[in-house]
Simulated scan of single mutants.
Amino acid sequence: MRQNKDDDTRIGRRQFFRTLGGGTAAAAAAVAAVPLTPTEAKAYDPGTAETRSRYRETDHVKAFYRTNGYETLKK
């Protein structure tokens, strides 16, 4: 490992990871200190327009079923 005496201000790799680990621990402790309050869940009503059936067995869909062998499964 090569070190220059002029590079005393540079941070080493190990020191960098030590600092990073300490910062992560401090951030985790700060998040844990925030009290979590439960919020009331609200239900979503999709209405009749969104719950109606949209599936239609068109000629295109019938051809797909026929070419992929789904008609044989009906029997």
Rank of each mutant, 00 (worst) to 15 (best):
Gln15Tyr: 01
Asn4Lys: 14
Pro46Asn: 09
Ala49Arg: 06
Pro46His: 07
Arg13Met: 09
Asp6Phe: 07
Ser53Ala: 11
Glu71Phe: 13
Arg66Leu: 10
Pro46Thr: 12
Lys74Glu: 12
Ala41Ser: 05
Pro46Leu: 07
Thr39Tyr: 15
Thr19Asp: 11
Ala33Tyr: 08
Glu57Met: 13
Gln15His: 06
Tyr44Leu: 07
Thr19Pro: 00
Leu73Ala: 05
Arg13Asp: 08
Arg14Trp: 00
Arg54Gln: 08
Asn4Glu: 07
Tyr70Thr: 00
Gly47Tyr: 08
Tyr65Ser: 01
Tyr55Asn: 07
Lys74Val: 13
Val61Ile: 13
Arg52Cys: 01
Arg2Lys: 10
Asp8Trp: 10
Ala43Asp: 04
Ala32Tyr: 05
Ala41Asp: 02
Pro38Tyr: 06
Ser53Val: 05
Thr37Lys: 12
Ala43Lys: 13
Asp45Cys: 00
Tyr65Glu: 05
Lys42Asp: 03
Gly69Glu: 02
Lys42Val: 15
Arg10Met: 11
Ala28Gln: 03
Ala49Gly: 03
Gln3Val: 15
Gly47Pro: 02
Leu73Ile: 02
Tyr70Lys: 13
Ala49Pro: 01
Tyr70Glu: 08
Leu36Ser: 09
Ala26Trp: 00
Ala63Asn: 08
Ile11Tyr: 00
Arg52Thr: 02
Gln3Arg: 14
Phe64Gln: 10
Gly21Phe: 15
Gly69Leu: 01
Asp59Leu: 14
Ala28Val: 15
Ser53Gly: 10
Arg56Thr: 11
Leu73Pro: 01
Asp59Val: 12
Arg18Ser: 11
Glu40Ile: 04
Arg2Ser: 05
Pro35Phe: 01
Phe16Gln: 05
Ala63Met: 04
Phe64Trp: 11
Arg52Tyr: 09
Gly69Tyr: 02
Asp59Glu: 15
Ser53Asp: 14
Ala26Gln: 09
Pro38Ile: 11
Gly47Leu: 04
Asp7Tyr: 10
Asp8Thr: 03
Thr19Tyr: 10
Asp6Gly: 06
Ala30Met: 08
Glu57Asp: 08
Thr58Glu: 04
Phe17Ser: 08
